[in-house]
Simulated scan of single mutants.
Amino acid sequence: EERKARERENEEIKTALCERIEALDFSKPSTYQEWDAMTKTILEAQEEWKKAGFAPRKTNTALFNRFRALCDDFFGRKSEFFKKTKNEFAENLAKKTSLCEKAEALAESTDWKKTTDAIVELQKEWKTIGPVARKHSDAIWRRFIKACDTFFDRKKKVNGDTRRAEQANLATKREIISRLNVIASDENTTPREQAIAEVQQLRKQWQETGHVPFKEKDKLQDAYREVVGTLFDKLDIKENRARMADFQAGIEASAGDSGKLSRERERLVRACEQRRQELKTYENNMGFFNSKSKNGDSIVREMERKMQHLKEEIAQISEKIKIIDSNI
């Protein structure tokens, strides 16, 4: 009777263990930590099972098979998860290694805009890739970030150098405008020929001076054009007229060579047509820009300057063609 009583007690213990395991959701764990926590619960139940004695013969085998099937199911699922996760980790490692190689290939690039966009895309792609095995995680991340930092540190240094150079150019061009304003002032008593020579030298220096900060470009260019225009009027500098006179003298000297004049005329006709096409393109494109925005206004003004320059060139070329026609 005592043995039977112990067996019934053991039957209740083993039944409770089976029910405890059956209450667990084996499909729920999705991380190593969750699987480890559930594994601990299963192992504790197995230890309790071992401590419990036999249940009645008619139920003992059934209980054992029930408990064993539950444990086998759990460990089978765990093994499958770990196998699948291991494969995913390997795939993720391969993808991240590929991104590292791409970033390393770009690290020394000097195409700053294009490469910046490319590396930003690599960084976005990195975020979409899942984790890798912990033993590789830190190393692969350090490799990737090192390549990215190498490029951006170089870009930062170059941009710093560029900004310093632009500031130096800005100071130079402001000084040129200041000196031109002095020549243009009513108080200036410099002889005309000397003033013209100084103006030409300052204009040459302006052309040779590099870029200035973009936000200063238009304002500086407007100030320069204004003072140069004032000086051209004041000093009666007729560059185009002088160049046209030189051209006419050259054509008159070649008046006896009709072949040479015809070839020059054909060249000028092609050049004139090319500029007319460029002018037409600018006129068509003007409608695509919004001059109300800061950038749009800057683009429109730049296009207007180019259009005016093209019109002047077309007029000059047309005048040259007329000069040739009068000498053929």
Rank of each mutant, 00 (worst) to 15 (best):
T189Y: 04
T116N: 14
K260A: 10
L70M: 15
N169Q: 00
G160H: 00
K155R: 14
K28W: 07
L43F: 09
V199E: 15
T172F: 10
W126Q: 04
A147N: 01
K157R: 00
A133T: 03
I129G: 05
E313Y: 04
G229D: 03
K28V: 12
N284W: 12
L43T: 13
I13T: 12
R265Y: 01
A107G: 09
N240R: 15
K40F: 00
E121W: 07
Q221L: 04
K51V: 06
S137R: 08
R267N: 11
Y32L: 11
L310E: 02
A223L: 13
K124I: 05
A147D: 04
W112A: 13
L220V: 12
I42S: 07
I140T: 00
K219P: 08
Q248A: 12
F89Y: 15
V120A: 08
V182T: 13
A62L: 00
A103F: 09
P191F: 02
F289M: 09
S254Y: 06
V120W: 05
N87P: 04
R68C: 08
K156E: 04
S30R: 05
E11Q: 12
G229S: 15
E11D: 09
R6V: 06
R154S: 12
E19P: 08
A23V: 00
E125T: 06
K322W: 13
K238L: 05
E264A: 11
C148S: 08
L235D: 12
W112H: 12
H309Y: 15
F54G: 14
K155P: 13
L106R: 15
R243E: 14
Q248Y: 10
L122K: 11
C272S: 14
E91A: 08
M286W: 10
E304C: 05
I237Q: 03
V199N: 15
R142P: 11
D186R: 06
R142D: 13
T230E: 15
K260V: 01
V269H: 14
L70I: 15
H309A: 06
C148K: 08
E108H: 15
G287N: 14
